[in-house]
Design a protein around this nucleic acid. Structure first.
Lengths: 330, 330
DNA sequence: CGAGGTATTGTTAGCGCTAACACATGGCGA
DNA sequence: TCGCCATGTGTTAGCGCTAACAATACCTCG
């Protein structure tokens, strides 16, 4: 008949028991070569595909990993999630993604419950906000979790880019070019990476014994960068480290509008290296994050965790300074 | 004991049969109110959560939808997928996403098999390339499919933005500003939306009886736009319709470098309205796509399809012209 | 030549849920 | 009073797979 064949059908076709079919499918060693080929032929002939739902029920393993992320239309999260899913696929896992509009405790918890119900073997939480990190404390029943780009919690392995180091490198670069001090446009409060970048900036200035100007508050958007740019133009800033590339674009726009030459009068360093940055006017000097490495690392940590390894040191991915045309010496 | 409770545990706790628990959970009408509360209390007390894998096996419905998409780090696909998953969640479905690096027949087919094995109830294919559309012809066994932003196939419902109309509107806008003709930087061959935008551009020029210049070939990247920009500067183009905003950024960069004023000497219209466009220098006039509407529409069509509705007319979402600073009159 | 392996296959019993039917009640009209 | 039906609940069989054990056959070695 026309319905999809099941294992029993294959078994009958090949003249063996369904269990032998299962053995062939699972690469069990103790199957005679001749039997194996016969089963394979039957599978081919019937166009059989194994029912993974039934398999998951029987094995209590779904071979599916869950990913919880915040706003996947942003370049950073999107790239991270992409890196994660590529790595998961490579490792033979399916991926189920929940993309949240806002990260508050309740939403993250719901998302994890949602994934837990679905029977995922583990969860990667892309939780760059402090609020989300808190949720990790009350883990769902027995599902291993890895936190990415965020704050860890007790017993939750962490994978992240070294944002502190990035802030440090960006600021040092500007100081080495001869700027007296470096201003900073930071990301929204509550974002761990924003805070770490700011700390790196402060550390670099402190180490060089320079004045630390009051940082300007941003929210990642170009609009916020634009506003900050207008203020900085008035302040007569000569060097600015901006916490992401989109805001840096806003600064560029503001400076262009006001006739302030970049990098002639002001040097700017961004963060992320979005694909557009290279074609800003001028091309943006920025800090590149290796999202693929973060993805691979998080899956690796998660799989280790699933296999029962207890504590894992946080995996920290180094960022890279990419020098382009938006920075120059005094 | 410490293991997760199953339905039978709840039943015992509430002093009913497991089937009654099932009835309560599924909102079956014929359950006495008092029984219902007793069961609910037991569920609460034990912290019971229903095993969706078992449910899926028994019902042969997973309440999960699959999404196949191309490069979700691009703004367009990312936004589309986001819209789709929001809409799916709203409708009470889980979403499983496969993000492909390249769309060729084989990859798309693999992805669909992968999702099919996982037992999804339906699949949304974000397939903007002609090659992908071909695959839809050989559907997987009985799983409903909806195509998004791409080319349809027989019997596959389609949801897309009206790219032709977008190209038309962009070109008309430039003609109305008094430009003699409009050049075009198109997207990569094989992309249906690129072709539709180009057709819209051609149609507008034809209708106005203007010369149709040879379109320049792009690949969506700012780098391609930059190359096109250098050529167009040489050609002395006064108006350009670029098939996406990233390439338009490349053009802006090229013109800035060459000292060609935008919009003084050249007017530019992009496509997509990425978040950055508003802060380009000058802010980019572009065609906005409503990705959320596409997402909602595709889920709606897919659910209809799952419920057995046979043929559905393609859903076409109108684009919107957003006028900013990159266009002006002659 | 028989005890004790070792490959190879089959049989049985679940995984946790829902569907379908069976079985009690109790109310109502004839 | 009896039969009939609606209402509520329990019982039984799966869904399609794997795990665990059982049952063969075939060796090997002393």
């Amino acid at each position: 008949m026309g319905k999809t064949p099941v294992m029993a059908d294959v078994a009958k076709e090949a003249g063996v028991s369904h269990q032998t079919v299962s053995r062939v499918l699972n690469g069990h060693p103790n199957v005679r070569g001749e039997t194996r080929t016969r089963v394979m032929a039957a599978i081919d002939k019937l166009g059989y595909r194994r029912n993974l739902t039934a398999r998951a029920l029987a094995t209590r393993r779904s071979r599916t990993l869950g990913v919880v992320s915040f706003d996947t239309t942003l370049y950073g999260p999107a790239s991270t999630v992409y890196g994660i899913s590529q790595a998961a696929r490579q490792a033979g896992y399916f991926v189920s993604i929940v993309s949240l509009k806002s990260i508050d405790r309740q939403h993250v918890r719901d998302a994890m419950a949602y994934l837990g119900d679905q029977g995922v073997d583990g969860i990667v939480v892309v939780a760059p906000q402090r609020a989300a990190a808190g949720v990790l404390a009350d883990l769902p029943r027995g599902v291993p979790v890895v936190a990415v780009q965020g704050g860890g919690a007790d017993g939750v392995p962490l994978v992240r880019v070294d944002h502190f180091e990035g802030g440090l490198a960006a600021t040092r670069h500007l100081l080495e070019l001869g700027h007296q001090t470096v201003w900073h446009v930071r990301g929204p409060t509550g974002w761990i990476e924003a805070e770490a970048r700011e700390e790196g900036w402060r550390a670099a200035l402190s180490a060089a014994g320079r004045r630390i100007p009051e940082p300007l508050q941003g929210d990642w958007s170009p609009a916020a960068g634009y506003r900050a740019g207008r203020i900085l133009a008035e302040e007569g800033a000569s060097a600015v480290f901006v916490s992401n590339d989109q805001m840096a674009l806003g600064l560029l726009r503001a400076f262009t509008e006001l006739g302030v030459d970049v990098p002639g009068r002001v040097s700017i360093v961004g963060f992320d290296d979005i694909p557009e940055s290279e074609y800003f006017s001028p091309p943006l000097t920025t800090i590149r994050q290796d999202f693929a490495a973060v993805g691979r690392g998080s899956i690796e940590q998660l799989l280790r965790r699933i296999e029962g390894v207890e504590t894992l040191p946080p995996l920290v991915v180094p960022p890279v300074l990419v020098v382009r045309g938006s920075t120059s010496g005094r």
